[in-house]
């Protein structure tokens, strides 16, 4: 079964809660409601899975190494900070 969240109010209502579901910030009853719904709605399951994958990709970001030249300049600037208001 496929449904269209743009035309099904219940899908749209649950769609708004998908981030909170992914973050485990929903009450148990709301979690169960979403789980029961996506078990029978491919469109909402696809929404949930693509959103979850987006979050997972964001979390894979690596550190950007600090350039040594900048690190030296930073320490010099902090050793003699500019005077006056910020």
């Amino acid at each position: 079964m496929a449904c269209d969240a743009s035309s099904h109010p219940h899908c749209l209502e649950l769609f708004e809660k998908l981030s909170e579901y992914i973050d485990d910030e929903l009450a148990p009853a709301e979690r169960r409601e979403i789980e029961a719904h996506v078990a029978g709605c491919v469109a909402c399951l696809a929404c949930l899975q693509t959103l979850r994958r987006t979050v997972a990709l964001c979390r894979t970001g690596a550190d950007h190494p600090v350039p040594e030249e900048f690190s030296r300049r930073l320490r010099s600037a902090l050793a003699a900070p500019p005077r006056g208001p910020a």
């Binding site: 496929a2 449904c3 269209d4 969240a5 743009s6 899908c11 749209l12 769609f15 708004e16 491919v42 469109a43 399951l45 696809a46 929404c47 899975q49 693509t50 979850r52 994958r53 997972a56 990709l57 894979t60």
Partner: peptide, 22 residues
Amino acid sequence: PEAAAVAADSVPKWVQMPLEKL
């Protein structure tokens, strides 16, 4: 939400692949 919640008829491939392969 109305614009973003476009219906899909299947879960796309990029979600099913292992994360490290992407």
